[in-house]
Design a protein around this nucleic acid. Structure first.
Length: 814
RNA sequence: GCCGGGAUGGCGGAAUCGGCAGACGCAGAGGACUUAAAAUCCUCCGAUCCGGAAGGAUUGUGCGGGUUCAAGUCCCGCUCCCGGCACCA
């Protein structure tokens, strides 16, 4: 059909691409099926938030994933390549406040539009497994998983200072605060004291670290996670307070410097502060200080330039080893939520303590000196030899750490301790458009999970979006007022919803089972498909989504729901799409719309250029001239196949093209597979095409067909529409995407003769042809007697000859 | 400050295990075809110098050293760029 419609000189891109897309949709060829005699391959791209339009970044990710999925299908894998929607979230709710359109309505409309765009891209998704996180048939299971966490005591409520975004009117997890600003809207984040739900991700800190050794991820993403988890080994030390029945526990990574502790510092928010200053003359001053510091934003509080400020409490603590009395201060440079919220001040060996001690004239005791014995310049933070440290004097820092911790433990004043920078994951959100937390608060029973048979806790739809005050859910009395599932007494429904990162922490599991009605996923399906073999996405989720998902997989593994506990075996972290030298943004006016690009160049040329212009992990600069080049290449391939061709039987040409064919199959197979080097796969196909242009009419028709079939098959994952068209023109009735990936005969790669370089002292002075099977001796003899060498060898002695077969010969002369 | 990743022609990039640097494409130049242009096909294309040309010499992968017969690649010391973290005790 499409064949008649066009000439052999010009490939009519819009018509042919549209034709094949319709055919693929109708034939449903990308449905994933568990086929037990095939190896499985799970290719996943991060699902989008349905903002309404795809952007060029999406085009890039989904192209990369689609190439991988198509390639693996042709290689004979049972491929799972699904798509869905990360559909809860604040933009839809904010839009509702402005326009009155309910979030559900706008979100589903956006999904409809974006799905059309994805179809225009010709992506090979199995749409039968589509997930939409904002629909009850998905979020009921998000709620069920919450209850699982609740039962396993991994979901808990706690009151404390939390990050509050005044613009989003909700709390944020630590991971979602960047430089003191909200990750979504860049508003400065403030602190509030609230009772909130948390997931106990810190229980998994060590396993989240250890698991990184088992996955094939880019180094920078692993390092970001390692830093975020922030494991520190050290010790806690307990200091009794003089005249009070209290003690202060500090965490330190340097127990070896304990003898240098000359004061203690509590964070302003430390729970002991108010207790110890009771009835003291200093109380007023301390309270005023704490009040002031609590006003200061996190950005300012933690900025490096912020001056260290503090106030003496009037209290003294007893040093657990020397019994010396040291003053207890409250200061802004100690964070309440790290370690124990209190530190020992060791000015001689800590830069911060040094500054502080100088400012407030606190004593400085040097207790570690360099191994050289020189007197150190303070603050001396490197390890060394202990001095002035009682029985530990003379020990090396590394040995003293353990020895002092052991001594503290013996005395009941401390012990070794590992601390993490990562905090528990705050998942409550004071917003409407999220999965309701399935908890009922009962005055007698406390927080009670909604029984599973009552899930989902549906979002009420008759709500008003005013944008003022608390979440709309708190206004729906008939929804909030419920009976306690345990005692049947009057109770109140939890009105917070879950962080949308909870939804996306398990969606990859839902795909494995399709739309199951009675459970989130089937274990056998999940065990078959998991882990994801290749996960394609942007770097912005390096510690958010990727850390949370790993945590979920580990919890589900522990609960016996899943065999694997690392969800993403390999991660392909793709770079940004830039245009005019900068990341695209509306304010810079350098945006490109996928609709326009795809309409102008077609899907295949757009894909090919994105793949060709840069390796996937690097930023990619869009260029008009560049995409023209890819477009030209596809037209060139089309003409090569579609035009009538002469034939001949030139032995040299036959051999050249056969060899080129084998080499190209090998190269493209490696590049699309383990190397993930799509750019060089494209260039290999360009070279192959160039070679065919030169010689194809010198070989017989039957060979021509085979050579062109190979080109078509290799091109199929990259330019699926053109490949399908060419495959049909080459006389095939079935889809090229269901054809087998080509193989090559290793013997065809072997050449009889190769050209090798002749070097004199490392400089190339000539080239000769040698047989590939020649031994070193024979090559050396030929080279040394070769005419081009004569002038270089005259009057010199040959000291050494290095022969690297098939590569070069290096003659070293004096 | 700490951690990670980079730096290769006019440009994007290639060189996979230490073995002929610059594949492929873009831009540019020339030729063929054409009344002409576009399109297409073919050829050339790091720099400097010698040569009419064929060809040759020197130099060249951020900078300075080193290892090696041989270094874009390995080692040591820097510079700059990008990304992440940063009062985390």
């Amino acid at each position: 059909m499409s064949q008649k419609a066009q000439s052999v000189d010009r490939y009519d891109v819009p018509a042919v691409e549209a034709f094949w897309r319709e055919r693929w949709d109708a034939d449903n060829i990308y449905r994933a099926q568990r086929v037990t005699d095939k190896p499985k391959y799970y290719c996943l791209e991060q699902f989008p938030y349905p903002s309404g339009h795809l952007h060029m970044g999406h085009v890039r990710v989904y192209t990369l994933g689609d190439v991988i999925a198509r390639y693996r299908r042709m290689q004979g894998y049972a491929v799972l390549h699904p798509m869905g929607w990360d559909a809860f979230g604040m933009p839809a709710e904010n839009a509702a406040i402005k326009s009155g359109v309910p979030p559900k309505v706008s979100t589903l409309a956006n999904i409809g539009y974006m799905k059309q765009q994805m179809r225009q891209m010709g992506l090979s998704f199995d749409w039968e497994r589509e997930v939409t996180t904002c629909l009850p048939d998905y979020y009921r299971f998000t709620q069920e998983l919450f209850l699982l966490f609740f039962e396993r005591r991994l979901a808990y409520q706690r009151e404390g200072a939390v990050n509050w975004c005044p613009s989003c009117e909700t709390v944020l997890a630590n991971e979602q605060v960047e430089d003191g600003l909200c990750w979504r809207c860049d508003s400065p984040v403030t602190k509030r004291d609230l009772t909130q739900w948390y997931f106990r991700i810190t229980d998994y800190a060590d396993r989240l670290l250890a698991g990184l050794d088992t996955v094939n991820w880019p180094q920078d993403i692993k390092v970001q996670q390692i830093n975020w988890i922030g494991r520190s080994e050290g010790a806690v030390v307990q200091f009794d307070l003089v005249g009070l029945d209290e003690s202060v526990t500090v965490f330190t990574t340097r127990p070896d410097t304990l003898y240098g502790a000359t004061y203690l510092v509590l964070a302003p928010e430390h729970h002991l502060v108010e207790r110890i200053i009771q009835n003291r003359p200093e109380a007023e001053a301390v309270r005023a200080f704490v009040q002031r510091e609590r006003q200061v934003s996190d950005i300012e509080r933690t900025a490096e330039t912020t001056e260290k400020r503090g106030v003496f409490t009037g209290i003294y603590a007893r040093h657990p080893l020397t019994e010396a009395q040291i003053p207890v201060w409250v200061a802004n440079y100690v964070l309440v939520d790290y370690g124990t919220g209190a530190v020992m001040g060791v000015p001689a060996h800590d830069a911060r303590d040094y500054l502080y001690a100088q400012k407030y004239a606190l004593p400085i005791r040097t207790v570690v000196v360099p191994e050289s014995g020189d007197s150190p310049q303070l603050p001396y933070v490197a390890p060394g030899i202990l001095t002035d440290s009682g029985v530990f004097t003379g020990m090396r820092s590394e040995d003293a750490k353990g020895a002092i911790a052991a001594e503290l433990q013996r005395k009941g004043h401390g012990e070794p301790r590992v601390t993490y920078r990562m905090r528990d994951w705050l998942i409550s959100r004071q917003r409407y458009w999220g999965a309701p937390i399935p908890i009922i608060h009962c005055p007698t029973c406390g927080p009670v999970g909604v029984p599973k048979d009552q899930l989902p806790v549906l979002l009420p739809e008759n709500v008003e979006f005013t944008g003022r005050g608390a979440s709309p859910l708190t206004q729906v009395q008939e929804w909030v007022q419920v009976r306690c599932p345990q005692c049947q007494g009057p109770a109140r429904r939890e009105t917070d919803t879950m962080d949308t990162f909870v939804d996306s922490s398990w969606y990859y599991l839902r795909y494995t089972s399709g739309a199951l009605a009675n459970q989130p996923f089937d274990r056998a399906d999940a065990d078959y498909w998991m882990p994801v073999d290749e996960y394609v996405g942007g770097k912005e989720h390096a510690i958010l989504h990727l850390l949370y998902s790993r945590f979920f997989a580990k919890v589900l593994h522990d609960a016996g729901w899943l065999t694997i506990d690392e969800p993403f075996q390999s991660l392909l972290s793709q770079g940004m799409v830039v245009y005019g030298g900068a990341k695209m943004s509306k304010s810079k006016g350098n945006t490109l719309s996928p609709e326009t690009i795809l309409a102008e160049w077609g899907t295949d040329a757009t894909r090919l250029f994105m793949l060709f212009a840069a390796p996937p992990e690097k930023d990619f600069e869009w260029s008009q001239q560049g995409v023209e080049g890819s477009y030209r290449f596809l037209q060139r391939v089309f003409r090569l196949v579609a035009r009538p061709r002469q034939e001949a039987e030139d032995v040299g040409a036959i051999q050249r093209l056969e060899r080129m064919q084998a080499r190209t199959i090998k190269k493209v197979t490696e590049d699309l597979g383990p190397r993930r080097a799509f750019n060089t796969a494209v260039s290999a196909l360009m070279e192959y095409t160039n070679a065919l242009y030169l010689d194809i009419e010198s070989v017989p028709q039957a060979l021509q067909t085979r050579l062109l079939e190979t080109l078509t098959l290799l091109l199929a994952p990259l330019a699926p529409h053109l490949a399908e068209e060419l495959w049909m023109r080459l006389g095939h009735a079935d889809s090229v995407h269901e054809a087998n990936w080509p193989t090559y005969d290793a013997a065809a790669l072997i050449e009889d003769e190769v050209e090798i370089a002749i070097q004199i002292n490392g400089k190339v002075r000539g080239r000769i042809m040698v047989g590939v099977d020649w031994d070193v001796q024979r090559i050396q003899e030929l080279v040394l007697s070769h005419a081009t060498l004569v002038p270089y060898l005259k009057g010199r002695t040959v000291k050494k000859v290095v022969v690297i077969p098939t590569r070069l010969v290096n003659v070293v002369v004096a």
